[in-house]
Amino acid sequence: MSQRNVKIEAKVGLHARPAALFVQIAAKADFDVTVAKPGGEPVNAKSILAVLGLDARHGEEVVIRAEGEGAEELLDKLEALLKQPEPESA
């Protein structure tokens, strides 16, 4: 199990364009990927509705987890996305 704690730098939080890009990246993995607020219930990172429902905002921290071949690379990509104030593309 690989895990990262990431502070959301996207200005609009994990909503709108950043959320869509986040889900699109996660959906490419053939293993489970989850995202949670620290101490909260993890949700499916491939589900836009579940990710939006987290309501994770700018400056908040989220925990992303994945397990499988390529999990580290995937988490790298997701972390890089969340670190962009205004992400342009995946």
Partner: peptide, 11 residues
């Protein structure tokens, strides 16, 4: 984003 919602695996 709406298209992603329509394809949501949880849904």
């Amino acid at each position: 984003a709406q298209a992603l919602m329509a394809r949501d695996p949880g849904l």
